[in-house]
Simulated assay, not measured.
Amino acid sequence: MNQRQTVPTHTPYYGSSKLFTIGLKPLDPDRWIEVDDHLLPYLAEKRRLYAEIPERVFVEEDGTRDAQREVLDLLAEHLPTHFPQTHRRTSNGIEVVGADGNSDSGIGAGEFGDAPLVAASLLVQEDLVIMRRDESGWRLVAGSLCFPSSWSLIEKFGRPLQEIHAPVPGFGPGTRPAELINRMFDGLQGQAVERYNWSIQSGNALYHPLSDVQRIDRATNRPSRFPDGDINAHAFIRVERQTLRKLPTSRDILFTIRIHLDPLRVLAGHHDRAALAVSFAAQLKTLDLAQLDYKGMTSDRDRLVAVLNHMASDA
């Protein structure tokens, strides 16, 4: 789908959010959700995915509907207050101005019934994941994930955090980062937090899944994502803005993921493009082989760095 051609909204690769770090920061509740000019295209893409591959983009365990309803209620309270131009209250609840399906769900009721998390997901550009604590840790018990960043919702469904993060270099079971993340989840109370993650992909697809098997194959064979060598034409920066907040009644944790996609070439229009490109390149150069394999950049890192260095020198 078409994405912005202007200056990026978030630039965590400037050095504010380094890869393979936890990097959680307090979040102003007023900034919980982001809405921009791509709201309607994002929601249309979600509806397409629900219609074509519903089993890959929505999962739920029995007993999670009350927590799902909490998410929907929180959004119904937050959105019309902070975004009255795009979200309004109606006799039926809340609707997005100009969106298809406001008067009818438009999604197969046979697939989802009346899952509140699906309704919630069609109000925002964010993906929505619910984590629940039990004896095995914090598990993924429900989720609407239409825009995965190289992972599979089906594979992670029902699994605890330490297993979900097992493929991430340095974050596997028994590592200090894995233990810290569990403690942070346990300690999360009224204060919401946010973090950023980022990567490079070829093309502008929002739906960008990857199974663990595909990840292993990619790390073994290390193919280039840009076989024609034209990084400027095909490279997109994928930024994930992630938030965590504890639901007030269920005490489950809601994990939101907002995807921003920007062509790499738009950095040339940034007011501080030289420093930005230098910092971006420097971060890429610090990644070790395991990290490059995980991000799928092993074969392309040097070419990406060269493009960024050229951008900096032209500033």
Rank of each mutant, 00 (worst) to 15 (best):
P12A: 06
H82R: 13
T90S: 13
D100N: 08
T81P: 00
E52T: 09
L145V: 15
A109H: 11
S17A: 09
R132S: 05
S105L: 14
E70H: 00
R139Q: 11
W138I: 02
V124A: 10
R56I: 01
V71N: 00
T86C: 11
W151F: 12
Y50N: 06
R133V: 02
P29F: 09
N92M: 12
V35R: 13
Y13W: 15
D30R: 13
R48L: 14
F147W: 12
N102T: 11
L122N: 05
A44Q: 13
E55H: 07
D104Q: 13
V57N: 02
Y13H: 07
I107C: 12
D28M: 14
Q68A: 07
S16E: 10
L140M: 15
F20M: 09
E60V: 07
G113K: 12
G98P: 05
Q68P: 01
E52R: 05
A109Q: 12
S16W: 02
V124P: 07
T11L: 08
L140G: 04
A142L: 04
L79W: 08
K46I: 04
V141E: 09
G143C: 09
C146S: 13
C146V: 10
L128K: 04
I94M: 13
H78W: 06
Y14R: 15
A51N: 09
A142I: 05
F83E: 06
Y50F: 10
I33L: 08
Y13F: 12
E34T: 14
G137K: 01
T21N: 06
R56A: 09
Q125N: 08
S103A: 15
Y42H: 10
P54H: 02
L19P: 09
F58C: 09
G93M: 09
Y50G: 01
N102F: 13
D36G: 10
W138M: 04
L72E: 01
V118Y: 05
E70G: 01
G63M: 03
E126C: 03
L40T: 04
V96P: 04
V96K: 03
G63N: 04
R89H: 11
S105W: 10
G15T: 02
A67T: 00
L39M: 03
P80Y: 03
Y13I: 04
T86D: 14
R65M: 07
E60K: 06
A109K: 11
V118M: 08
V124S: 06
V129K: 04
S144L: 04
K46T: 04
H87C: 11
D28R: 14
F112H: 15
L72M: 03
L123N: 13
T11R: 09
H38D: 12
A120I: 11
C146G: 12
L39T: 01
S121F: 05
R47H: 01
E70W: 01
R89V: 14
E111R: 11
A119E: 15
V71I: 00
